[in-house]
């Protein structure tokens, strides 16, 4: 079957051969060239003078607009950044001020406290010293009184024993000896 079809195709090709290749029929060339020149020329003229400049202008306009908008956005961003810097600067200022006030107050208070502490310490030391002096005095007088009592007792004991009053200096030496032994 296929050979028959190929044969047919060849036969139909032979049939068309009488007309030849239509592309090589030079009698149609002038007409084709004329209409090609006309249509291509019109298209070129319209494209170069009207359509393409319009599209190019629209593209340009959009590009400009986008660049413009980008510039504006950058400007806005710059302003926002400035405002933020301003804000953070004032915040830092306020914080520094507050810290300064706090530090000052703390210093004052601590000075006062230390002064008061010093005063209190001083008065306390005075009182302590006075009390210590008094105690020392009392201790000394008490010791003297004990010595005196011891001497009196010694004298009384000696008188009772030997009926003779001893010399004060001897009594004192004996008491001191005894006190040293005790």
């Amino acid at each position: 079957m296929l050979p028959s079809l190929v044969l047919f195709a060849a036969e139909s090709a032979e049939g068309a051969e009488k007309a030849g290749l239509p592309q090589l029929d030079s009698s149609t060339w002038p007409s084709q060239l004329f209409w090609l020149a006309l249509t291509f020329g019109v298209l070129y003229w319209l494209m170069s003078t009207y359509f393409l400049p319009r599209i190019g202008a629209a593209l340009e306009e959009r590009r400009d607009r986008i660049a413009d908008d980008l510039d504006k956005a950058a400007e806005g961003r710059r302003m926002a950044e400035e405002a933020e810097a301003e804000y953070s600067r004032s915040l830092a200022d306020a914080r520094a001020k507050a810290q300064a006030i706090a530090a000052q107050t703390r210093d004052e208070v601590s000075t006062e406290v230390s002064t008061m502490q010093k005063e209190a310490e001083e008065s306390l030391a005075e009182k302590t010293e006075a009390a210590e002096t008094r105690i020392r005095d009392m201790k000394a007088s008490a010791a003297a009184k004990v010595r005196e009592a011891a001497a009196d007792t010694t004298r009384a004991i000696v008188e009772a024993l030997i009926k003779e009053s001893p010399v004060d200096s001897v009594v004192a030496a004996a008491v001191a000896k005894a006190a040293g032994k005790a």
Binding site: P22, Q23, P30, S31, F34
Partner: peptide, 30 residues
């Protein structure tokens, strides 16, 4: 035939001087 589709056929016969510039099917599609 396979070549029939390439035949240039006049639709409106036109001449410019001695030259045949008929409006053909080719011109129509241009």
């Amino acid at each position: 035939g396979p070549m029939e589709q390439f035949e240039v056929l006049p639709i409106i016969p036109l001449t410019l001087g001695n030259i045949d510039v008929s409006f053909t099917n080719s011109s129509l599609w241009m």
